[in-house]
């Protein structure tokens, strides 16, 4: 707001003072929210790092198992076992709130399927395929857990960025501008008062001279 747009009156001064008070309380609340989100983020980050390491470890293990199965049984046997499988792992997506921010909650309905329920013949396949299937089931479980943690972390980071902007705007732009406007109005009102006093003195002198 430039000083030329400000009307230096008492009502505007009172309004500006009210705005400053409101902006300062809003700024404090947003600052507290930002700090809260950052604390929450640090808690989640440790979990996310751990989950990522687990996903990588499970993935490498699963890939190793499937490569062994392919080498021993042949790629076609592994493929035919994979295509013969029954069951479809499901997830349930719901929402939960962290400091007013909605984050997804992922509940997995997948687990270890017993060998007889898998859908392929136990005699026609080997333990290598079974081990690979188990390793991938484990990876799937870890992946679902990682999905929840990583998405929460992404949402938290987005919210931190937004809140940071909301904290910076009043801190560096809104409040200083309002304070500048307040100072300008106070200065102008004092100046007008001084002018008025001088004018009255001048009139008084003139009236005394006329008498």
């Amino acid at each position: 707001m430039s000083t030329q747009e400000i009307t230096p009156t008492r009502s505007v001064l009172l309004e500006t003072k009210k705005k400053i008070k409101l902006s300062q309380s809003g700024y404090k609340i947003m600052k507290m929210k930002r700090d809260g989100l950052i604390i929450e983020f640090f808690e989640i980050m440790e979990k996310a790092k751990e989950m990522r390491d687990r996903v990588v470890a499970d993935y490498l293990n699963a890939m190793e198992k499937i490569h062994i199965a392919s080498a021993v049984e042949g790629a076609i046997a592994v493929k035919s076992a994979a295509y013969a499988l029954k069951g479809d792992p499901q997830v349930c997506l719901s929402c939960k709130s962290i400091m007013g921010m909605t984050v997804p909650k992922v509940d997995a309905e997948c687990g270890c399927t017993p060998i007889l329920d898998r859908g392929y013949g136990v005699i026609s396949t080997s333990a290598y395929i079974e081990e690979a299937a188990k390793a991938f089931e484990k990876l799937l479980e870890t992946m679902v857990l990682a999905a929840e943690v990583e998405t929460t972390m992404k949402r938290l980071l987005d919210e931190i960025e937004k809140t940071k902007r909301r904290v910076n705007a009043p801190e560096f732009k809104v409040i200083p501008e309002l304070q500048e406007a307040e100072a300008f109005i106070e200065f102008r009102l004092e100046e007008m008062e001084r002018e008025n006093t001088i004018r009255l003195k001048h009139l008084k002198r003139k009236a005394e001279a006329a008498q």
């Binding site: 699963a62 499937i66 493929k79 994979a82 479809d88 690979a132 299937a133 390793a135 991938f136 990876l139």
Partner: peptide, 8 residues
């Protein structure tokens, strides 16, 4: 392929 083995 591996995920197919896990039932996906």
């Amino acid at each position: 392929l591996g995920f197919r083995l896990a039932g996906v």
